[in-house]
Nucleic acid binder design. Structure first.
Lengths: 250, 250
DNA sequence: ACGACGCTTTGCCCTGGGGCAAAGGAAAGG
DNA sequence: CCTTTCCTTTGCCCCAGGGCAAAGCGTCGT
């Protein structure tokens, strides 16, 4: 059925260079994605303490954040852009296991090593903390620790969900589910409405839901022609909600 | 692509009846699967204390152990048989998210409610503990708690693995991976060799790896004809290891 | 030992989606 | 502003695997 998207055939491979720049954190209190992130659990005092141990890192598109198998020495909170979480399969195919959106917390696996890789899909910024600093801070701030745990539960739920999405479903069901799930995630960030940002490429979507890039493209086009969605630059607008939900359930 | 295996079309639906019988635990110290279970972390003293809070439950084939959404009041350690972990999708399809083999620990989700259902695929026995008793016991036995954590990590790894298996891979690759993964799991229990028990039905395998029952059957037959495996009652024997590994990597 | 039931295997046909490749667009770099 | 480089869309063809259904087997119960 489906085709290895070898990493070599991707238009460009992830670049080995890591973080592009580091800046001191200033004014977490004015950070616009804070409400959607784990930092929402911190009051003014804790926040400035937290600021002191973090740095803002920027990543150019395709820059690696961390690699599977590597020691997990840093943790991240995405503040803008999009991070791809992926595993490279023995046959060269890339399976995207998740997307890190602004507000998402990344890089704290159960063990001491990463179990998947992460790179920036577009220009991305993230607050970076040394694992030890971060853990020590969390252990001194119980509310924060609980919030972290919540984040982990949410990630697990998403993974479970994704597992059931990947199975043998029709292309339009997969794409419809994908759009609805992205919409739900953006709503937690923006509140937003019918417009769903999709900053990732068609290839990324395919590697996430388990479809060929051509099929992804065709399916978007079909949904557009059917009047279910409208394709807009870097995203879609949902025109017929019930129809989309209906498709997602197939 | 793929077909809803509606729960109604399954030859028989899971039965609503729960545990068939309960017996006091006697002689955990002689339990043959103990080395493969979380109980392996307990010494003689702790073991008899542990015995006191558990009961051995038996389940007839297709009996429900617990259901998605239900409060998770009991936890289980499988001692014999096979448990199917599954979610029912909106379209009626059943996605099997894992198999509980002897030694596996089940029923302690992150939240207070189960996120998937479980039923017995064949006649099954399991040690059952009240969640509270179990948690209290674990908190008083640090080695046991760590062992529990290890079990959770292993389960997560398996789920991650499964997520990459489900994607768009060829039928023989999926089946080959499945056989190798089952073999690896049995080896931890039996040590065993080339013979891999497969107590679950073809339908179960299909709902796990994302293939139609007919395709599952055809693929097993093909691998048999090619001399890669030999189909034996309730399992397979691996004849050509390198070939199987090779297929699994596709 | 026999019969019934349920699971597995197999054949036949068909369709959804992959492979390939070219054309069309958008964005980045000079 | 123009050129280059990706990325997306689309057409054409083909095949892996799904749908359906019948036949084959094993097993369990009486």
């Amino acid at each position: 059925m489906s085709m290895p998207t070898s990493i070599e055939t991707l238009s460009r491979s992830p670049t080995a260079n890591r973080v592009r720049g580091l800046k001191l954190l200033a004014n977490c209190s004015r950070c616009s994605i804070r409400p959607a992130s784990v930092c929402s659990a911190l009051d003014a005092g804790a926040l400035s303490e937290f600021e002191a141990i973090g740095r803002e890192a920027s990543f150019a598109p395709r820059m690696i954040v961390f690699m599977e198998g590597e020691r997990a020495d840093w943790v991240y909170t995405v503040t803008s852009g999009l991070v791809r979480l992926f595993r490279l399969l023995p046959n060269g195919q890339r399976q995207i296991v998740g997307f890190g959106l602004p507000g998402d917390f990344l890089g704290l696996p159960r063990g001491e090593r990463h179990v998947y890789s992460a790179d920036a899909a577009v220009g991305t910024t993230a607050c970076r903390f040394h694992r030890q600093d971060f853990i020590m801070f969390a252990e001194n701030h119980t509310r924060f620790l609980r919030r972290l745990h919540d984040a982990a539960v949410k990630a697990l739920d998403l993974a479970q969900e994704q597992m059931t999405q990947l199975g043998p479903r029709r292309a339009d069901a997969k794409i419809a589910s994908f759009i609805l799930s992205m919409r739900a995630r953006w709503m937690e960030i923006n509140g937003a409405g019918e417009s769903v940002p999709l900053p990732m490429s068609r290839q990324d979507i395919g590697d996430y839901v388990g479809l060929n890039i051509a099929t992804v493209s065709r399916t978007f086009t079909r949904l557009d022609r059917q009047g279910v969605i409208r394709i807009v630059p870097k995203g879609v607008r949902i025109l017929n909600f019930p129809a989309l939900r209906q498709l997602a359930e197939q």
